[in-house]
Amino acid sequence: MVEEGLRNELSRQNIFLTSIQELYNWGRRNSLWPLNFGLACCAIEMIAASMARFDIARFGAEVFRPSPRQADLMIVAGTVTKKMAPMVVRLYNQMPEPKYVIAMGACAISGGPFKRGYNVLKGIDRYIPVDVYIPGCPPRPEALLHGLITLQRKIAGERLTGPERPRHLRELEPSEYPIPAYGPYDLDPPKNTELWHPKPFVRDA
């Protein structure tokens, strides 16, 4: 690795140094194709983010694809109900690797205002791995853009080799997750225990 100061100096002389890893991450992070996938109210703000004023195209993510086979970013925008959760997981499974998930809005994170409801999934991270959480009800389009930039930073920091490589480069990590079934009382299983490790809640003494 060349150190940062030398690299800057060289780039002033019109000599650019890079590595395969940087080039690869640079290319991928600037052309995220989101899945055209709206669940509820938050989807309207997602659409607003792709329109003229907020213009998500500035960050290379304006190509909303209707088919999961062509998308590599799933923005879970809205309330995931127990009836819809199997479809969301199925859509995730159908996306090709490498794939990322943004949970947009309180509902996708935790159930939000409807958490007490009997039919609302309390967070999509119980079934699929989430990379970026955007709080808000609904998050403003700026917040979505910030979430997208956060994801881009995350991609920029990914390593292609070594023990810190991301999920999609490890052979033993799954690229698809079990699809829950609609059981008699609740989704079956109610959560993917291999994936979902909430921090235990400790009250201050």
Partner: peptide, 30 residues
Amino acid sequence: FGYLHRNHEKLCEGGTYLMAIPYTDRLDYF
């Protein structure tokens, strides 16, 4: 239907009259 059944009516019955107003926002979110 039913993929977005969010229990509005039941949740509003569980709260006070004032608490139902934010839920009405989320009915027709336009």
